[in-house]
Computed example of a mutant assay.
Amino acid sequence: MLDGTKKYQTRVEFALDYITQEIAQGNLKAGDKLPNEKDLAEQLGISRTPIREAMKTLSVAGLIDIRHGHGSYVRGEQGAPALPLNLFQLYLQDSTPEMLMELRDIFDRNCTELAAQRRTDADLAKMRECIDRLKALTEQPNASLDDMLKADLDFHRAIYEATGNKLIVTVADFVLNMVAPWVKKSLDVSGRIRAVDLHEQMYASILNQEIGVPSRLSVDANMKHFKQSLDQE
């Protein structure tokens, strides 16, 4: 049964990859009508059921409009600028924790250094408040794990904001939202006090405006902790 489910999911992903690549490469443009399920199934050599499931996924992701009785269309011109981000989101949702961790590592390493160079007193105050909030929660036996997660994520968002670059803030926060479930797991299984200590290291690096090796050591410690958490059952 499991093998059958896995095979079905593989066919859905195959259909998703094909359609998204057609859109990304410009073979299917905004407003274009997609081939019908029967034609796509014959073209890809799979049944219509995974094609239908792939279409539903693409519709939820905002890449296509399914017009019952008329077919499926790539989102119109007004939605065209969002297509690359929607494609990115679609692939993120299908990524492994390890892939997400590597992506987050790239953002955190560079954002921490940039924040160290550009941070203001207001930025530092915001980071400090997040750490203090997280620390206070870890000292409460019955504190909500969701509240701890919010404090943790708010700290990282404060770092992104300290870069002063709205593009970085938008994309980095997008990635952070995708890894949030794994950050929550990290808080739950690896010791909440340890999370506070690691955030203190990153804060000190930004406060002291460290760049290069000193800055990356603090991020490396956070990523190592994060990876160890993912490896635990």
Score class of each variant (00 low, 15 high):
K135Q: 14
K135I: 10
L137N: 05
E139I: 10
Q140S: 12
P141Q: 01
A143V: 09
A143L: 09
S144C: 06
L145Y: 10
D146A: 14
D146Q: 13
D147K: 07
D147T: 06
M148H: 01
K150T: 15
K150A: 14
A151N: 07
D152H: 07
D152L: 01
F155T: 05
H156I: 11
A158W: 06
I159G: 04
Y160L: 01
Y160I: 00
Y160C: 00
G164Y: 00
N165C: 02
N165V: 02
N165K: 02
N165A: 03
K166Y: 11
K166W: 10
L167R: 13
L167T: 15
I168Q: 03
I168D: 03
I168P: 03
T170Q: 14
T170K: 14
T170I: 10
A172I: 03
A172H: 01
D173A: 01
V175N: 03
M178Q: 15
M178F: 09
V179L: 03
V179Q: 00
V179S: 04
V183A: 12
K184G: 08
K184M: 10
K185I: 08
S186Q: 12
S186M: 12
S186C: 12
D188G: 09
V189A: 09
V189D: 08
V189K: 12
I193L: 12
I193Y: 10
A195C: 09
A195M: 02
A195E: 02
V196M: 03
V196N: 00
V196K: 05
D197G: 11
L198S: 04
L198V: 04
H199W: 05
E200K: 13
M202V: 15
M202E: 13
A204M: 13
S205I: 06
S205H: 00
I206N: 00
I206E: 01
L207N: 12
N208Y: 09
E210A: 10
E210D: 11
I211C: 08
I211H: 03
G212S: 10
V213C: 06
S215V: 01
L217F: 11
L217Y: 13
S218N: 07
S218E: 06
V219T: 07
V219E: 04
D220K: 12
A221M: 04
H225N: 15
